[in-house]
């Protein structure tokens, strides 16, 4: 008799291994997201400068990152950089580098968009009541920018978490890879393994991303009703 698919989770360390894989996914995403938000804010402010040189350079960077499929970037960093410069980068570090490059570019563009969507008369009204430039940013521009930014940034974060599944292909053992290993090992005993395992992984991604999306929707609603 063939094994029931669900039993797979209770064989050996399977269940724990999947969760460990999930932790790899989540921690790589988390580190990349945190660095991206930080660098993205700086990039967005630079992109907003009137200087034509910084404008061109940041634009090229953004377009380059957008045109390149993330997989190509991963290979470029993991295989290309490692071979060419004889630096030994682990798959995890390569993944963090690539997702940070991508996240920074996208976040930078979001920050630029949010900043430039604040109308000029908001700055002028701030000036007209005698605020200094610093106070105008602190009390008027940044609060409005953040309100516009957060839903978009959260959307980017969930995209980044989902896209980390690509790092299987540079040999990082994350949640999808663990799933594949379990399916391989039980191919003969449990033909329904892939359905169960991938179904469970789907569920895990949902568990991670859904609360983030909900949070974003909630913030958006609250701020719209406040007029932010």
């Amino acid at each position: 008799m063939q094994d029931l698919g669900i039993n797979l989770f209770f064989q050996g360390r399977n269940f724990v291994r999947i969760l460990e894989g999930l932790w790899v996914t989540v921690s790589i995403s988390l580190i990349a997201v945190i660095i991206s938000i930080f660098l993205g804010i700086i990039l967005g402010m630079v992109m907003n400068l009137k200087n034509p040189v910084t404008k061109a350079v940041t634009r090229i960077y953004l377009e380059f990152i957008r045109i390149m499929p993330q997989l190509v970037l991963l290979f470029l960093v993991y295989f290309g950089v490692t071979r060419t410069f004889h630096i030994n980068l682990s798959g995890e570090v390569s993944a963090i580098i690539v997702f940070t490059m991508w996240g920074t570019a996208e976040m930078g563009d979001l920050v630029r968009g949010a900043l430039s969507s604040i109308p000029k008369h908001q700055y002028e009204s701030g000036k007209a009541i005698g605020l200094t430039g610093f106070q105008i940013y602190l009390y008027i521009i940044i609060p409005q920018t953040v309100r516009r930014l957060i839903p978009l940034a959260i959307n980017l974060v969930t995209r980044m978490i989902k896209t980390t599944s690509l790092i299987v292909l540079i040999g990082v053992v994350e949640v999808v890879k663990v799933g594949q290993q379990i399916i391989e090992a039980s191919r003969l005993t449990t033909p329904t393994a892939s359905l169960w395992i991938y179904g469970f992984i789907f569920f895990l991604y949902f568990i991670v991303c859904y609360p983030i999306s909900r949070l974003s929707a909630k913030l958006e609603k609250r701020w719209v009703s406040m007029g932010g």
């Binding site: 109308p119 008369h121 908001q122 002028e124 009204s125 701030g126 000036k127 007209a128 009541i129 005698g130 605020l131 200094t132 430039g133 008027i140 609060p143 409005q144 309100r147 701020w223 406040m226 007029g227 932010g228």
Partner: peptide
């Protein structure tokens, strides 16, 4: 900015701070 504290200005566009 110090001078502007003594000069009030109201513009054509509704320029309240929305947040």
């Amino acid at each position: 900015h110090l001078v502007r504290q003594h000069i009030g200005m109201v513009f054509q566009s509704y320029d309240l701070f929305p947040h």
